[in-house]
Amino acid sequence: MSNKVIHALYNDDDILMDAVKKVKAAHHHIDEVFTPFPVHGLDKAMGLAPTKIAITSFLYGLTGLSFAIWMTNYMMIQDWPQDIGGKPNFSWFVNMPAFVPIMFELTVFFAAHLMVITFYMRSRIWPFKSAENPDVRTTDDHFLMEIAIHGNEEELTTLLNETGAVEINVIEKE
């Protein structure tokens, strides 16, 4: 019976926010909330930890910058130095001003793309992935709260009804 869940549907973001707070106050764990648009403060109300994805982006950016420095140094200074337009190439540092655009672009390139790939992997979204929202209305105008049932079905149903849910379904989850 442990894989039984309750789905409560709401049709307004403010009612949903109040409901989330009430359910948390009654010490129930909210497994998931599906919403059609970002509801501000919902993650905090649900007790989700803040995302660290911006930090990964910073690290990816540093990687891109390091790669650009290594690449320009290897290609223009070490492997095949050439005097082009009188720009000095005795060392990477004296030639550096000409490489600033490359360093900047590669920093942005790495930071942006690797962060987005990280986001897709962590949130499990990619081509040919099938959607996992339990009700098609959750991408339109409904908000769905999913709570696991541990022999407390009636108590939960009463509580969710009080919070203003427009529909409550008990589902056997595979």
């Binding site: 909330v33 648009f37 509801v39 949130s123 979204i125 040919f128």
Partner: peptide, 10 residues
């Protein structure tokens, strides 16, 4: 891409 709209995704 199978977007589901979970609170964490948002």
């Amino acid at each position: 891409f199978g977007w589901s709209g979970r609170a964490k995704d948002w």
